[in-house]
Write a protein that binds this DNA or RNA. Sequence first.
DNA 1: AGCATTAAAGAATAATATTCAAAATAATTC
DNA 2: GAATTATTTTGAATATTATTCTTTAATGCT
Lengths: 166, 166
Amino acid sequence: MLTFALNMTKVEFSLDQIDYQILRIMQANARTNNADIARELGMAPSAILERVKKLEQKNVILKYHAKINPAALDQKLLSFIFIKSNDIIGDQKVGVALAEIPEVLEVHDIAGDDGYLIKVRTSDSTGLVDLMRNSLGKIEGIISTRTTIVLQTVKEEQELVIPNEK
Amino acid sequence: MLTFALNMTKVEFSLDQIDYQILRIMQANARTNNADIARELGMAPSAILERVKKLEQKNVILKYHAKINPAALDQKLLSFIFIKSNDIIGDQKVGVALAEIPEVLEVHDIAGDDGYLIKVRTSDSTGLVDLMRNSLGKIEGIISTRTTIVLQTVKEEQELVIPNEK
DNA sequence: AGCATTAAAGAATAATATTCAAAATAATTC
DNA sequence: GAATTATTTTGAATATTATTCTTTAATGCT
């Protein structure tokens, strides 16, 4: 039994091999239906349903997401920006403000630099400049920024490595 | 009508407001069923099904993914690593090799530095060191690395900004 | 071993997915 | 701008799946 803290909420769980298999299937295709999972695992659909519900309740499965082609929505420019802030340790004013910007997909508090690394998607470089001027520019406590433009993405997934049958 | 290139494959599409609404719903919860979407949009389920299929075929929807709590799989350490390589322009040997490592979730070819920015999840710092030694260490063409450890993640999503009703 | 708890199976019902022909819309052509 | 063609949507019928609930099996605990 493992115990850990997530966003102020205590969460408990213990996962077995069947759970791992379910997670593996769902991670690969979140629209796989219960009946198919049940068939694949040789179990009753009702049993799978139970387990999936539990995985959701236990915050093991956090959400189901449709990955959309950024180009289809004209968001072709991906950038990473290092942001140096004057946030005090423990505080996260700048981080929270950054997280509120829709184009900012990720905000990570990083070690060493009193700063954040953020991931941003905009239509193009103009959109990026606008964002930096209009959104970042309005946040109090940002000392400096360093922008890294992505030329091409070779891989972009969130599939976690799921432990193998031991 | 927009045309763009994706992974060597030409893709064409034109999205209307209904498509945007479907994408909005699916992005928020990829398990929303056709019937519900149909009800929400006041259309027949069969019509929604048609559109979703088309969005998949047109590579607008790339995949359906279950987001799993990294802590539940004991992958609590997130890091970003800058990798300087001797890849020639256009070539991507190092990038492709990096992409083959399961713990490497993202590989971005970045401007300016002849290098890549990768995103890595491991259980802990030991796992990270192992990965650098065993996986990165075996890749030909890596000149140097600079690792950034994430202390805390404030936001981590992939929800794209979907254009509003005009 | 016996009691308690949890998970799985199985059957029955409700709901959804999917298919397809017909009607409606939109787009194109002359 | 009327006619034609192509594309979408609807609506109904059928196949599949989701969901609930009871029974049975498995597991854990003292």
